[in-house]
């Protein structure tokens, strides 16, 4: 009887350990990843998009044949080739709306290809108006009406960059600054003033909207920002413009090999804890089977 119980315990321990390890390896903790359910992933936003019937764009030439109303790109990270670039530009000039949500300057190549003059500047934007106890968790305000900003008065940002050119849609308050020395306060040559974090530009029949903060899409910025209109902005993004989303060059869809995931897993405390649990399980089983 005791031996049977011991066997059951061993099997149960191994099954639980296996489930935990598999579940861990099948997800990722890469920031912005669509497959990351953690605080810095974007699974919740893309789930919302998929539930609303949005389609994934897996190649740009498809934009020519059956182009959507809106295409959302998040932190686009590589240069488009000639045909891809042409497809994207054509999509915009033919009346499409391209929404680029990015805070890295690497996204400027996409904007340039699409014909926009708006540029992202990867700066340390800080403000006295902050949603969280950190000047880089900036609160920004709508300064011009736009269908995407319906019922959106202010949003909380997560270390946004700044924009130049285009028409400002959302700006920080006047007591904001580029924190050049990254000390969290305005000093030295740092100047106060409003900074644009969301702008748009009309390109022929189309429109390009740029939001210089991909941080608003991460999971933790969804449910924690109760005081601002972040949720409304997401809803507007998902519902009001019938968008498709880019999976070609957007960072949330970058997947890396399992080997890298395992390597990363080895360095995490979770794995250490699992190892401890596994050892304990084995000892329990040994005890149950009277090996000890």
């Amino acid at each position: 009887m005791r031996q049977t119980t011991g066997n059951i315990l061993v099997v149960a321990a191994l099954v639980i350990a296996g489930i935990v390890i598999l579940s861990y390896l099948s997800s990722t903790d890469a920031e912005l990843s669509r497959y990351n359910n953690g605080w810095n992933g974007t699974s919740s936003f893309y789930d919302q998009l998929e539930r609303s019937g949005s389609t994934a764009i897996t190649s740009y030439p498809v934009l020519r044949s059956a182009y959507p109303d809106t295409l959302i790109m998040v932190e686009p990270h590589y240069m488009l080739n000639g045909e891809e670039g042409e497809s994207l530009r054509e999509f915009v000039t033919n009346g499409g709306t391209l929404i680029v949500i990015a805070q890295r300057e690497s996204a400027n190549t996409i904007l340039e290809v699409a014909g926009s003059t708006v540029r992202i500047h990867d700066t340390k934007l800080a403000s006295i108006d902050m949603e969280y106890n950190d000047p880089e968790m900036v609160i920004a305000y709508q300064v011009q009406e736009h269908s995407l900003l319906e019922d959106v008065e202010s949003i909380a940002l997560n270390q946004p960059s700044t924009l130049t050119s285009g028409e400002a849609l959302i700006q920080t308050s006047s007591i904001s600054w580029i924190d050049a020395n990254n000390n969290g306060k305005v000093d030295g040559i740092e100047k106060l003033g409003k900074e644009t974090v969301m702008a748009h530009e009309i390109i022929e029949q189309g429109e390009i909207i740029v939001l210089a903060d991909s941080g608003i899409l991460i999971n933790s910025m969804d449910f924690t920002v109760s005081e601002r209109d972040n949720a409304q902005l997401r809803t507007n993004l998902v519902t009001s413009l019938k968008p498709s989303y880019d999976t070609v060059t957007s960072q949330p869809f970058v997947t890396e090999g399992i080997l890298q995931a395992v390597t990363g897993a080895k360095s995490t405390t979770v794995i250490k804890i699992l190892a401890i649990l596994l050892i304990t399980g084995i000892i329990c089983a040994a005890y149950a089977r009277k090996i000890l």
Binding site: E31, W39, S127, Y132, M137, Q159, S173, G215, V270
Partner: peptide
């Protein structure tokens, strides 16, 4: 670290709002 989400204030290019105190400060006003 087993409940690390509330302890990691920053990772990569983002800050973790779960680990930061929400103050909703609008002092410009």
């Amino acid at each position: 670290e087993i409940y690390a989400i509330g302890n990691v204030e920053e990772a990569g290019i983002f800050k973790n709002p779960i680990a930061l105190k929400q103050i909703s400060q609008e002092k410009t006003a």
